[in-house]
Write a protein that binds this DNA or RNA. Structure first.
Lengths: 141, 141
DNA sequence: TATTGTTATACTCTATAACTATA
DNA sequence: TATAGTTATAGAGTATAACAATA
């Protein structure tokens, strides 16, 4: 007798499995760049917002401050990011030349990843799909 | 100047944030039952498939065998699940009376959670939304 | 008082390797 | 040889608590 999967048709479970599969795939695609998805995301955010502080990044991406410190530390140690004092307690972050180069490669990987995901969904449903995801993302009440 | 979020409109990123928000919410809702989402899922699977083995559950839910052992161990220690030898190396799993009672409560929590999620999405888009998620879930190539 | 940045710590989920017992 | 179950271990993400320096 074939086993029954009582979770298969639950939207929340499908959401979890889809997200997990997509993240695993992206992680593998970023291996050649020696970046994790969270690190690549932070590079893109700094590139789009020169002199942003790490607490601002944390609020934007919902990464707790305690976890931003080692993440930024790794990027700084690899000389992808530089800190520039804003005031006595805040530091603006900017990409180095190497950081901009790696960010460009990361953007290509992520863009390609996104296109491959969306290719699975009928074109006329994509906008509704993303809108539905964004409405769930604020449902954490 | 307001910071720019270059990730906000990427479907894959929206997928990750939506999944993360939903999982955090479900985790909180399961706290009174002292169950994690993965434990609740396993209870539902055993309830729907008496005498299923833990390796079969692992294949269904994509939980590695190495991680099933401590998970089932916790459920057995709480006397929610019993092991019954199938052959020399396999054991069928069944719920105890306490396990069935807790499973029923977990099902209520999960069903309510699913309904609250879907309430955010227009009714005429829900089927397409779940179908899109299921097609992504197999995109881990 | 509140915020920024940081360290330390712990928990969950996940991943790999190695091992036994059995098929 | 392949599979079931287990143990140990490590990585990654996330969470809280605590602290110093600054606003």
């Amino acid at each position: 007798m074939l086993p029954v999967d009582p979770l298969r048709d639950l939207p929340g479970y499908a959401l979890r499995r889809a997200s997990s599969a997509a993240m695993q795939k992206l992680s593998r695609e970023l291996v050649p760049l020696d970046l994790r998805p969270s690190e690549a995301s932070v590079l893109l955010v700094i590139d789009a917002n020169a002199n942003i502080t790490q607490s601002e990044i944390g609020r934007m991406l919902e990464i707790a401050g305690a976890n931003m410190a080692p993440l930024i530390g790794r990027l700084e140690k690899r000389e992808l990011v530089e800190r520039q004092p804003v005031d006595g307690r805040s530091q603006g972050l900017v990409l180095t030349a190497a950081g901009r180069a790696l960010c460009a490669r990361a953007r290509k990987v992520m863009t390609s990843h996104e296109e491959n995901l969306m290719a699975r969904i009928p074109a006329n449903q994509r906008a509704a799909f993303v809108a539905a995801l964004q409405s769930l993302w604020d449902s954490d009440q």
